[in-house]
Design a protein around this nucleic acid. Structure first.
Length: 603
RNA sequence: GCUCCCGUGGAGUAACAGGCUAACUCGUCGCUCUUUCACAGCGGAGAUUGCGGGUUCGAACCCCGUCGGGAGUACCA
């Protein structure tokens, strides 16, 4: 009895487990390059799915034909692949719940749209876009906001206000129509968001959103609910910008009778621009003033209220007071039109969610991969092109809105999967911090395997027109990885290993080359030329021994040596440099360098 | 305007369901190491947890108010 009971419970738990295996989707629309925030959404979806042995799905939301950008879908796929976020179901890979492009599911949305009308949850609306725009303008002139809702739908042209015959006539005549959701009155729609807890919406305040557009395509709201239901999505993990429309989505599940299989929601915090105080200072105010000024006039090309110089003064004054920015930017009743325009512009460029323009202005990538837009100003660089290790970027992104609750910061993808949970996602906006991003990359570089780094270095060195064997590259990687932020920094920094054609830091050379030590320095070159064992260890013995014997200063000998051999005063251990260069090259460079330094000194 | 969300040192976050001197990372400053540069190690400065009330022996945490910021408010997603 006891046994059967416990095994029954076990089976029960097991079947629950199967039921709970999450199916999550990343659902971008192919309207351009995938923003870094989108990558983070994809990452969290992936992590959650993998943690629980679930399924990670890519669905392309291309219901807006006017905004479709060729190449965008490829960009998305390539970006996810670069990040190592493997898809279980996707347009390319297929799956049991396809097609995975909404444009290819068009027919079913139409059916569900009409079902809404039939069961009383929707209605036909015949108002044209132009009519509604006019209405909006009219209301705005009165200082009010137009909304298609319970209050206004009875005075508009729709199947609620027209007779059945009229409606039929219009439909038969193939008149353009949309189907709108008829939001019920006096209800409280509530969700239990995994990140935010209970969130409530009053149905009275929800507008009658368009579900089916006049071109027969669904809007996001209809398509996402219909697809999530049919693709058996268990958790909707998406950006916070969707939170306000979630009430509509719940209503839709209700309208279709799917409320019991409604997915759980998790709304991710926004990724915010870097805090102005983190990059603004007294030294660079003028640079940023000019940047903002240019952007301001680009945006307000017809701005005639004040001269450019007056606007510059206004912007500069506000930026200078960086600790009180939000107070300075508040719009006061006495502010005139020009001041309001300037304040409004600064507010939107200084605060809010991270945008492409922030990347341009502040000098960091905001997209995973580079993108070539139609116009030159639409082109931008990516984390990949700047030289990021994809895992460093992923690691950085993972912490933008989530933390493991431990002090560990460096995670592999597998470790992230293991540590991740939706419960530990924060609610407040996550600020983009490029310094931190660079730090992550540096950590990956430092802890990277030398052979791996060497193989990454190879093409980079080649693209400079240089070459080196694998052993040299591996040693260069070892010596330079803790001195660089990006692997791409290394070839230039270590150029003297790849070419004899490098410049001397002449100012430094002049300072370090002392006439009184010249003879001894030349003598050491001779000793090195006769040294059999050219290993770093032995060189250290030989050189240090020579210095001590002759009672010279270390700096007197090692500094000129270093500059003659590498051109610069900094870098890895001098003995390692000499050993890697080899005797022939080292001695040759020393002779040439010392002659040059003497000439410099005499000039 | 309205709706929803958020508010912890310069930046990012922590503090599990109110309980020691608010912790960690980045950045910054100093020291040690290396007679270089970095890495690393050690240490310092920096927060009356947006503000004001309230509940409580005790509040970053709960309640009310207030201010600030963000998102949404399209036949875009």
């Amino acid at each position: 009895m006891f046994h059967t009971e416990s095994s029954f419970i076990l089976i029960f738990i097991e079947s629950l487990n199967i039921m709970q295996k999450p199916r999550v989707r990343f659902a971008p629309s192919p309207t351009g390059a995938l923003h870094i925030g989108g990558v983070r959404t994809a990452l969290y979806n992936y992590l959650y799915a993998k943690k629980l042995g679930g399924t990670f799905i890519l669905r392309i939301e291309d219901t807006d034909q006017t905004r479709y950008v060729p190449g965008a879908e490829d960009y998305i796929t390539e970006a996810l692949a670069w990040c190592g976020l493997e898809l279980d179901e996707s347009p390319a890979k297929g799956g049991d719940y396809g097609p995975y492009r909404q444009s290819e599911r068009k027919d079913m949305y139409g059916d569900f749209g009409h079902q809404l009308v039939r069961n009383g949850w929707g209605y036909y609306a015949f108002d044209t876009a132009e009519e509604l725009d006019a209405k909006r303008e009219e209301m705005e002139a009165k200082g009010e906001k137009f909304s298609y809702n319970a209050l206004t739908r009875n005075s508009l042209r729709n199947s609620l206000t027209m007779s059945d015959a009229e409606v039929k006539e219009l439909l038969d005549a193939n008149a353009d129509f949309t189907i709108r959701l008829k939001c019920p009155a006096d209800e409280i729609v509530s969700i239990n968001d995994i990140v935010r807890g209970k969130v409530e919406f009053q149905s009275n305040l929800l507008d009658d959103k368009v579900m089916l557009k006049s071109d027969g395509m669904p809007t996001y709201h209809l398509a996402n609910v219909v697809d999530d239901y049919h693709m058996k999505i268990t958790h909707v993990i998406r950006g916070e910008e969707w939170l306000p429309s979630t009430g509509h989505h719940v209503l839709l599940y209700r309208a279709f009778g799917w409320e019991n299989s409604m997915p759980q929601f998790a709304h991710l915090p926004l990724i915010l621009k870097p805090a102005p105080s983190s990059y603004l200072n007294n030294k660079n105010v003028d640079i940023y003033t000019d940047k903002f000024l240019e952007e301001f006039f680009k945006k307000h090309s017809d701005f005639t209220l004040k001269t450019k110089d007056q606007v510059r003064q206004a912007i500069r004054g506000i930026l200078l007071d960086k600790d009180n920015l939000s107070a300075r930017l508040q719009i006061k009743p006495k502010d005139k039109e020009d001041k309001i325009a300037i304040k409004g512009f600064l507010k939107s460029t200084l605060f809010g969610k991270l945008s492409k323009r922030d990347g341009d202005r502040l000098g960091f990538p905001v997209f995973p991969l580079a993108w070539q837009g139609e116009k030159p100003e639409d082109a931008f660089t990516g984390f990949r092109e700047v030289g990021f290790d994809p895992m460093a970027m992923i690691n950085f992104l993972a912490f933008l809105g989530w933390n493991p609750g431990t002090e560990q910061e460096i995670f592999s993808l597998e470790q992230l999967v293991e540590a991740f949970s939706l419960e530990r996602i924060g609610k407040s906006g996550a600020r983009f911090d490029y310094e931190k991003a660079k730090w992550f990359n540096q950590q990956y570089l430092i802890h990277g395997n030398n052979a791996d780094l060497a193989s990454q270095l190879k093409p980079l060195v080649a693209s400079e027109g240089w070459s080196a064997d694998d052993a040299t590259l591996e040693k260069v990687a070892e010596l330079y990885k803790q001195r660089a932020t990006f692997i791409g920094d290394i070839p230039q920094a270590a150029s003297y290993f790849f070419t004899d054609d490098f410049n001397y830091d002449e100012k430094n050379a002049k300072k370090k080359w002392k006439e009184k030590n010249a003879e001894k320095n030349h003598e050491l070159v001779g000793i090195l030329a006769d040294t059999e064992d050219f290993s770093a260890d032995n060189l250290e013995k030989v050189i240090k021994g020579f210095i001590e014997e002759n009672e010279l200063g270390f700096g007197d000998v090692m500094a000129p040596l270093r500059i003659a051999v590498s051109g610069v005063g900094g870098g890895p251990s001098l003995f390692e440099i000499l050993a890697l260069l080899g005797k022939e090259k080292s001695v040759g460079r020393l002779k040439k360098g010392y002659a040059h330094f003497e000439a410099l000194k005499n000039a």
